[in-house]
């Protein structure tokens, strides 16, 4: 069936709620309104107001109540509207969700999924466009997923909901309306498995979220210049599928990481450190990072487009390694 990325996510929630009564959904405006981006449409009608609930404007507590409901035996798949607002709930996520089991013992588990909308949206501004994955990378215990396609989003969200570990599920706003043909029958994508979106031999481009599409476009351009790009979409950022990524690096010996996050302390920062430390002898050059400029994302769309990696910047970064 042909679905948008948003519809695929909605279908994942619906299927998991049909399968398991313990799955509940709450967040701001998720009930009758169906969520600000429409991701939870139809869930209230099908599952009722005990399982699909609007919350007060209390992000800190949306996460905290999420942790508590999970500890208490439910399987909450909650929504924090914009990923920027995860920072309002930082303590509940970075500390409570991630550490509860480790600190209190193996009888405790936090089967919580926090969905949020990330990334630039052409004029949404600095505090509604964030990509904050790298901040949570630093907390042992969190699973971080960033799907870039409808197919990946559906399979991964289903797995995330079935996982007994706390998961941050970052959706990209600019991908919500992208259509894709996905299977009619049920399928799951395992957490922690990367996807080689384009096989190549000359350079490994690790791209996240919206940057996957741009990296694939860059790869097409580079093909004409005789550079064969392998594009890997980690899909799960933590835990990273090192097997797939390292196999690629051992083949190409050149790496570019493309992210929408700010450069300093971003995902590329951690990946670069990891790759050069563990695969130094395999590298023919530095790990190049293509990331958002280190500024709060400006409101002016021209500024916005200049801040975030575009195809031109990705092409240029790859060429710098040759």
């Amino acid at each position: 069936m042909l679905v948008t990325y948003a519809q695929a996510i909605n279908a994942a929630m619906k299927e998991e709620m049909q399968r398991d009564k313990k799955v509940v959904v709450f967040g701001e405006d998720v009930a009758q309104f169906g969520g600000i981006f429409g991701l939870t449409r139809g869930l209230l009608d099908e599952f009722g107001s005990d399982r699909v609930k609007n919350t007060p404007v209390s992000e800190d507590s949306i996460a905290g109540v999420g942790v508590g409901s999970a500890i208490g035996g439910l399987r909450p798949c909650i929504e924090i509207m914009y990923s920027d607002f995860l920072l309002v709930a930082f303590n509940e996520i970075f500390q409570s969700a991630a550490k509860w089991r480790y600190l209190h013992g193996p009888e405790y588990k936090v089967p919580l999924v926090i969905r949020s909308a990330a990334g630039s949206a052409l004029g949404a501004g600095a505090e509604h466009s964030g990509c904050v994955e790298s901040l949570f990378l630093h907390s042992p215990g969190l699973t971080i997923i960033t799907p870039s396609t409808a197919y990946d989003a559906k399979g991964l969200l289903k797995s995330a909901i079935r996982s007994d570990n706390p998961v941050l599920f970052f959706e990209q706003k600019q991908l919500y309306q992208v259509k894709e043909e996905i299977p009619d029958e049920e399928y799951l994508i395992p957490v922690g498995v990367a996807d080689v979106k384009r096989k190549g031999t000359d350079v490994t481009v690790i791209a996240i979220g919206l940057m996957v599409k741009r990296s694939l476009e860059a790869a097409e351009e580079l093909k004409n210049e005789g550079i064969d790009v392998e594009v890997i979409d980690p899909r799960t950022i933590a835990p990273l599928d090192k097997d797939t990524v390292y196999e690629s690096i051992r083949k190409t010996h050149r790496i570019v990481v493309v992210e929408e996050t700010n450069k300093t302390g971003g995902l590329g920062a951690e990946f670069a450190a990891m790759f050069q430390e563990e695969l130094y002898d395999e590298l023919d050059g530095p790990v190049v990072r293509v990331a958002a400029l280190d500024v709060p994302l400006p409101y002016n769309v021209k500024y916005e487009l200049a801040s975030i990696p575009d195809v031109k910047r990705i092409v240029s970064a790859v060429k710098s390694l040759f």
């Binding site: 109540v65 942790v67 500890i71």
Partner: peptide
């Protein structure tokens, strides 16, 4: 809030 979450469960 975690305690409130447990009470919801």
């Amino acid at each position: 809030p975690i305690s409130v979450g447990v009470s919801y469960a």
